[in-house]
């Protein structure tokens, strides 16, 4: 078998990548169209039909509302530049509760965004997230949380509030009506986080990220079921397409993951 023949599976089936980033030129005000066009070229080659993108602000200092509003406008530029293929998720800093909630509402109702992306500003089960989670329940949109259980000291220092599966499970039990996505389960100590969310039906996960340890896909399907796993690359397309093609899981499970069947309604509803 040639890998290009195997790749036909993606070209022959609907593929939605739920965890992507179209970056700004560095200041969160202007879309980096060069990076965006390069990414779209790679997505085309790999058979990825639709992508959901966000622009979280990874500033060491605090992210004021005007910054996250600007970042979301950059995401909207990407949505407009690649119409019908790119969908937006809103990023907001939870420390500014009322401004964050207002921004999420603007992004969903005015810009047609399909979800919220949260970063490592706080652990997911921190009460500071309550207003955002409650707004997402009201708007019926998913919450994608940057997550990983780091084992290495540099990242534990750099991202001390990085959420892992335990934090996700705590939040999910507190808000069973919310829809959570534990971002890139594949990175860092992935089995730890999979175990933590296995019994939380309202926590989904995505398989994005540069790490492609065998057999993380088989393990995720066994522990969660394919319908709780979303496809995504987090800008690591070869790693992620390789993972899905190489996984010893059924074609039906692959189709379920690639299409993001459980999340289709979010895309169908809010296209502008």
């Amino acid at each position: 078998m040639n890998i290009k023949e195997k790749l036909k599976f993606l070209h022959d089936n609907p593929v939605v990548a739920w965890h992507e980033h179209f970056w700004s030129t560095g200041d969160f005000t202007t879309l980096n169209t060069v990076q965006g066009d390069d990414m779209m070229q790679v997505f085309d080659a790999l058979g990825i039909d639709k992508v959901v993108t966000s622009l979280p602000v990874n500033k060491i200092k605090r992210c004021d509302p005007e910054v996250f509003v600007s970042a979301n406008n950059v995401t909207y530029e990407a949505v407009k530049r690649y119409p019908g293929r790119v969908y937006g998720m809103a990023y907001a800093h939870p420390g500014y509760a009322s401004a964050a909630v207002a921004e999420i509402e603007r992004c969903v109702k005015e810009l047609g965004f399909v979800g919220v992306k949260l970063y490592y500003d706080y652990f997911m089960d921190d009460p500071v997230y309550a207003p955002i989670i409650e707004k997402c329940i009201e708007l019926d949109i998913p919450i994608l949380q940057h997550s990983m259980h780091f084992m290495d000291a540099p990242n534990k220092i750099r991202q001390p509030l990085a959420t892992d599966g335990v934090h996700m499970a705590n939040a999910a039990k507190r808000y069973p009506e919310a829809t959570f996505v534990m971002g890139h389960f594949t990175i860092a100590e992935w089995k730890y986080s999979l175990n933590a969310i296995a019994d939380c039906p309202n926590v989904y996960t995505d398989m994005s990220g540069s790490v492609y340890d065998r057999p993380q896909m088989e393990m995720a399907v066994e522990m969660l079921g394919a319908d709780r796993i979303l496809f995504g690359t987090d800008n690591s397309p070869s790693s992620c397409v390789g993972k899905i093609l190489g996984a010893r899981i059924s074609d039906e499970d692959k189709k379920t993951i690639l299409s993001g069947r459980a999340f289709s309604r979010f895309l169908e509803r809010t296209v502008k």
Partner: peptide
């Protein structure tokens, strides 16, 4: 780097 990784990722890298 088998068996640590999925081989297909590296096949894609050289193919595309």
């Amino acid at each position: 780097l088998s068996p640590f990784n999925y081989m297909e990722t590296n096949l894609l890298r050289i193919s595309l």
